[in-house]
Design a protein around this nucleic acid. Sequence first.
DNA 1: CATGAATGAGGGTTCATTCAT
DNA 2: AATGAATGAACCCTCATTCAT
Lengths: 225, 225, 225, 225
Amino acid sequence: MVEKEKLSRREREKLMQREEIFNAALELFSEKGYHNVSMHEIAKRSEFAIGTLYKFFENKEKLYKALMMKKAETFHNTMMKVLDGSDDIITLIKKLISVKAQLFADNLQELRLYFAETRGASFNIKSGLDRDIRKMYQEFIMHLASVLKTGVQENIFRDIDPYHMAVALDGLANSFLFCWLENPDRYKSDTNVSIITDLFLNGVLSEDKKNSVSSARGDISKQGD
Amino acid sequence: MVEKEKLSRREREKLMQREEIFNAALELFSEKGYHNVSMHEIAKRSEFAIGTLYKFFENKEKLYKALMMKKAETFHNTMMKVLDGSDDIITLIKKLISVKAQLFADNLQELRLYFAETRGASFNIKSGLDRDIRKMYQEFIMHLASVLKTGVQENIFRDIDPYHMAVALDGLANSFLFCWLENPDRYKSDTNVSIITDLFLNGVLSEDKKNSVSSARGDISKQGD
Amino acid sequence: MVEKEKLSRREREKLMQREEIFNAALELFSEKGYHNVSMHEIAKRSEFAIGTLYKFFENKEKLYKALMMKKAETFHNTMMKVLDGSDDIITLIKKLISVKAQLFADNLQELRLYFAETRGASFNIKSGLDRDIRKMYQEFIMHLASVLKTGVQENIFRDIDPYHMAVALDGLANSFLFCWLENPDRYKSDTNVSIITDLFLNGVLSEDKKNSVSSARGDISKQGD
Amino acid sequence: MVEKEKLSRREREKLMQREEIFNAALELFSEKGYHNVSMHEIAKRSEFAIGTLYKFFENKEKLYKALMMKKAETFHNTMMKVLDGSDDIITLIKKLISVKAQLFADNLQELRLYFAETRGASFNIKSGLDRDIRKMYQEFIMHLASVLKTGVQENIFRDIDPYHMAVALDGLANSFLFCWLENPDRYKSDTNVSIITDLFLNGVLSEDKKNSVSSARGDISKQGD
DNA sequence: CATGAATGAGGGTTCATTCAT
DNA sequence: AATGAATGAACCCTCATTCAT
């Protein structure tokens, strides 16, 4: 993503330093939340002087914003890449959930911060972080909707507003994933992704598709009367 | 809930004052989040002296916790009451969404705080607020699951784990409601509640029930072929 | 001391109330020190309203001063009364130490406050408490000196400046009494008073008196060469 | 005590700053007592920002304790050093009083604080300051007692409990010194030290020594018959 | 250029005092 | 006259930010 070849040694070094500050800050914010972390702590953890932090980031809020935006972009891009794949729509949805599940498993703390910004009370109103992140989120939903729309056009899905389908799919995934990550004992990564997928597909697949999509029934509905 | 007849004038006054502090604090916390509101501000907004605030609430954290617990209990009780109604399961679900929609419409800001505690990064860990609120939420989900279970037993729903259905229904509702409340132009309270209901029911109704539940089809699926 | 006969019921009542506030305040100040006691606490302990406290005492500092002055006067008067007795000088000194010892044993905490004002850092500089108490103390020392002077004139004591003798006697007594009250295991009230007396008398008695004052030798000096 | 040669410029500076805060704080505490001095005042007097104070001392109580302990140690060490000298016992006592007198003259305000902790009402109990200081004081008394004991063994003093002699000597000195320092007009450093010494020695010297110790008579007892 | 000592505004909280009832 | 609810100045302390080195 970063084109190291074109940068001078000095510039590369700077980028590395920025990265190290990022990592230290992310760790701390994730552990304790924005307001319970001081610049002092970040400086110590990143092994830079406080002044150096301010060379890279105007202030604490901007640092946090940059951090969250970076994470959000990573999440965003990861999800978007799935949407841009050439899989058939059913596979794509399965992948989407699967990738999202992995994202949750790997970044639970960071996602809490992320959701605090999207759903909860933003820590950084002034910097407009919440606005920017929500915009990205909307972009993703719209893209997902456009993909789902092809499913409707191909008669795989019933004629439901694709935007609604997108919101539904995402909401379903979020609530299950949070639920599982908070009650880790309930979570078995293999079968659980399909629970979400199946619940979603059952609601949106067109009648004549239902039988042909194996996993969409057997798993969650035990009696096929 | 409060028996005003039995209280002395002084006690009524106290209750009113407490309420006013509550409201001022709730407004401010909702607008800016816990850490961006000072006791000074709350005092000013509520038109009391700082000392008076401390007569009613031991400290800022306790005030916040009392606030959140009160709101959470209101939400909780409102939703629980619906579950305890004697309606048939389909009506009950519709009511649930409808009531929840109203709750969202009336308390968007407060709900942001609520979600910050349940989903986002709550770092008010000391007071155990997040634990208490999540417990209440789990209680609700379990109760909803038990109600949905009767739907499975009566063969209205397919044989899906009721807990999963509960998580799904709640997740679906949350994401739609947040979405609409952030894009108020998309929101028309009448038709939109049924979008959530229909999406959910389509995923869980047993085959032989689908035709008999009118609203569950026509609205979202325009053509059943 | 207070002539109750001449006071109306109302006035007697007031006096009683004042007394109760005094006692509550004295207890608390003795337990925790001036700055660690709030008017609230005094009100609660004395079972009066805060406002009532302020009817009797202009402010906290004045209350404390009144309190300390009263205690100081009690100490002062008790000691002065001994000085005014008609005993011979040796007996008088013994009584003085004995009475002082009893005062210390009964009022250790209050005396700590008293010494904080006379010797330590006064809590109430503004009110001039330290000045007033030190004045009383000087008065006592001067009176003691005048009594000791008769001992010099009667050739019972050597020709030492009576003021010096007074300071010496008081200093001796204070340091022993504090020492014993802080190490109560060392303290046996009977013999210890005579330790102070003997030490003092040994230093000041004229040669020809030493043999005639029995207790002044045998007790502390075992070998009479 | 501090090896300035081995410290870097920065370290020396730090030490100087600490010293300046110490001095400002000591002045203020001595003038007004612990509770009547705010960190704000100390900051202003020492010409540092409040934050800087907290770089050097964890909190107000720790600052006060450090202050008191330092002063107490200085007093303690100064007195102890005299005790460890190789002088004969009479000279040693004279030196002791003389050094103590100088200490009082140079540190009257600070000594008030010190006595507030040892004798008066110390309510800095949390930090254990009073305990630590009293322990040091006891140590000094015990050491003094052990030195005086040699005087008894060498038959210079009568057979009096050395601990009692120590308490007496210290108490005598304290009361005279306080008295003089509060009535500076009475004080003439030369003759007055010998007043204390003589009073003490008169009480404790063995009979056969009294004549040989010149100063112990002539000064305070004008006629020896 | 990197550093981190120094800053001081602003936070939460207490409590002596007032005054309407 | 007695009350105690209400007040708000002032406390201790933190931490984002600056700037001389």
